[in-house]
């Protein structure tokens, strides 16, 4: 029976059975550990360094319940935007829909920026409102000024970091693509690292300044 190259089973290669068994039983655990451990530790440490800023404002964070409730969601959301921007920009680069020297004139970049910014705006409003509503249910007093500050901080942190992620993705993506590497491999860890670190840093600083 003939097989196409992709269908050809390993057992037709005339290799000894023990070699075939070794391939089937390749040390997956060791391989996964070897390939993942460095980037996992690095990205987790970067996120934790951002947490130093929050640790410095922990007393204020405990007193301002809506901010504490919002903390994990804010961290997640900006990280998600990092992944979205980096992966979509990489696709645009591969599709040659971005001109290297005049990238700011490309309609695709404008659309991506508008789409992500609009989602960021709505999502951060939703997050701040939901966080305050839950805090209110828990017995936290409703103060319009505090609510306005929460919404303002959420919007500022999100839009500011989306802008930074865009800048890094464009500059880094064009550079990495020019060097012949796959931008996804660099931009996604970089963008999520900036997002995790930046969201905690901005929230910590703003909490210390405004309250």
């Amino acid at each position: 029976m003939r097989h196409t190259p992709t269908e050809k089973p390993l057992k037709n290669l005339d290799w000894p059975i023990n070699r075939l068994e070794r391939i089937e039983k390749e040390p997956t655990t060791r391989k996964i550990l070897k390939e993942s451990i460095k980037i996992l530790i690095l990205s987790s440490i970067i996120s934790s360094i951002g947490g130093i800023s929050i640790e410095a404002a922990r007393v204020k964070l405990f007193a301002l319940l809506p901010f504490l409730i919002m903390l994990p969601a804010l961290n997640d959301m900006i990280g998600d935007f990092g992944t979205i921007v980096a992966s979509k920009f990489t696709v645009l680069l591969y599709q040659k829909r971005i001109k290297r020297h005049e990238w700011w004139k490309g309609a695709a970049v404008h659309h991506l920026f508008m789409t992500v910014s609009s989602v960021a705006l709505i999502a951060s409003l939703f997050m701040a409102t939901l966080a305050y509503a839950i805090a209110w249910i828990r017995g936290f007093a409703f103060e319009p000024i505090l609510f306005a500050k929460l919404v303002g901080i959420s919007l500022f942190a999100t839009l500011f970091l989306v802008l930074i992620i865009f800048a890094v993705s464009i500059i880094g993506g064009l550079y990495v693509h020019k060097k012949g590497h796959d931008p996804d491999n660099y931009l996604i860890p970089l963008a999520t690292g900036i997002a995790d670190f930046g969201s905690m840093l901005v929230l910590g600083i703003v909490l210390r300044w405004l309250f």
């Binding site: 996120s47 934790s48 360094i49 947490g51 640790e55 994990p72």
Partner: peptide, 9 residues
């Protein structure tokens, strides 16, 4: 709060 963001990530 130093541990938490890294742990979640």
């Amino acid at each position: 709060f130093i541990l938490m963001p890294g742990f979640l990530a």
